[in-house]
Design a binder for these strands. Sequence first.
DNA 1: CAAATAGTGTCTGTAAGACACTATCCC
DNA 2: GGGATAGTGTCTTACAGACACTATTTG
Lengths: 233, 233
Amino acid sequence: MNENAVFRDDDGRALADYPRPSVAVDTALMTVIPAGEGSSAHLGILLVRRPPQSVGALAGWALPGTFLHEGETLAEAVRRSLEVKAGVTGREPQQLRVFDDPARDDRGWVLSVAHLDVLAFDDLERLRESPNTRIAALPSRLRLPYDHLAIIDLATERLRLEYRTHPDPRGLLHESFTISDLRAVHEAVAGRELQKDTFRRLMIDELESLPAAAEGRRGRPAQLFGRSERQAE
Amino acid sequence: MNENAVFRDDDGRALADYPRPSVAVDTALMTVIPAGEGSSAHLGILLVRRPPQSVGALAGWALPGTFLHEGETLAEAVRRSLEVKAGVTGREPQQLRVFDDPARDDRGWVLSVAHLDVLAFDDLERLRESPNTRIAALPSRLRLPYDHLAIIDLATERLRLEYRTHPDPRGLLHESFTISDLRAVHEAVAGRELQKDTFRRLMIDELESLPAAAEGRRGRPAQLFGRSERQAE
DNA sequence: CAAATAGTGTCTGTAAGACACTATCCC
DNA sequence: GGGATAGTGTCTTACAGACACTATTTG
């Protein structure tokens, strides 16, 4: 501890003199919803039902969030909020930006640090029965409170950047997959169709081929790939 | 105000129940120091002298920063700290990230939101006489407190990204300049030499040529350019 | 003239995009 | 064989990087 600077800031005022804001975290937990009948794979976002006492004029769904506790890092607060509110274990929450409009929350002075986290759809399957969570397809027409729509936009943009140059940096696929599987994920993230030949040549160097082919599908069986070490870069 | 949710969070606890962190801003105000005798143009960072009561084991220089005041946005706090600590008017503070290690500041629980801002060297000239500020060349061997070295690295990286694809997004040059001037700035930001022919062809489409040539220099006079509208993109 | 800097012509290698073809499975 | 999907050959275009040349000034 610094003996000279007993809780004083650079301006010489004691820290306790300043009013302090509440600091919250809000998380866009994104996933790729697999293709169903008539729909191709698409982005999804985890929403949680807001408890009755905090429901205002807006709809009852929101991004999971919580207030930062003392002695806790932001990432820890994000993981805690995902666990408590949705029973989901997050992975690598990544900061997007701080929302700092002093009037953004009518409950008081609340800063919110927006985060992005990503989980494979399988890991979210268990939420299917819970009435307090949902996975909404994007773009969503739901009305969300605070800056949550802006957070989702930022998160989508960040995710697109990450997937633009790497096969599966966030682990949306599991141990083995075909290049078609991977392309479906990329098309969902990018929000547009990708050419199969160009895509293959772009990704093939960063994948590790497995000694097996996909089974039980139509057409010529495809080579299976795994995540190579290079993906971490 | 929301009548139903009288200062309660989503978990039903009153906001006042939670201890709140102090929130600070720290700013990497960067510039490009023009070429002198024997040295080419290079990046510089504004440092301010820390007042005696806050000086700990580390050296007496730090990035300018302050605590966030009530009712203030982060950008406003950044501008205020630049004005108060260095007499400088900042431009467009941009968030880099939140430093959130609970133990990062031994004065207490302090989150710091790191920012990047940029000023042309001319606008910093007036600081020359002040003993409480300095513009340090980068990379600096100074020992700085807290996470300030990490902030500078982040800021440098961000600046490189911005200048990689645009002529002068942050206004490091004034109304008119030659492509050589512009290249000197880019070499300072990138930290390496750039080829003059490739650089010219990369930038020329985003510049607006002025009906004049540079005077008072050696060699063939160069065309002058201004910032075109496209630079805002 | 020489020195110095501005600006251009042009070749090379790489890579994305696009089209068309071949390959191999299931029914 | 027909349908479906996997995978490749190859052409075009674009563009960064590099080298060498020409252009225009000052001293």
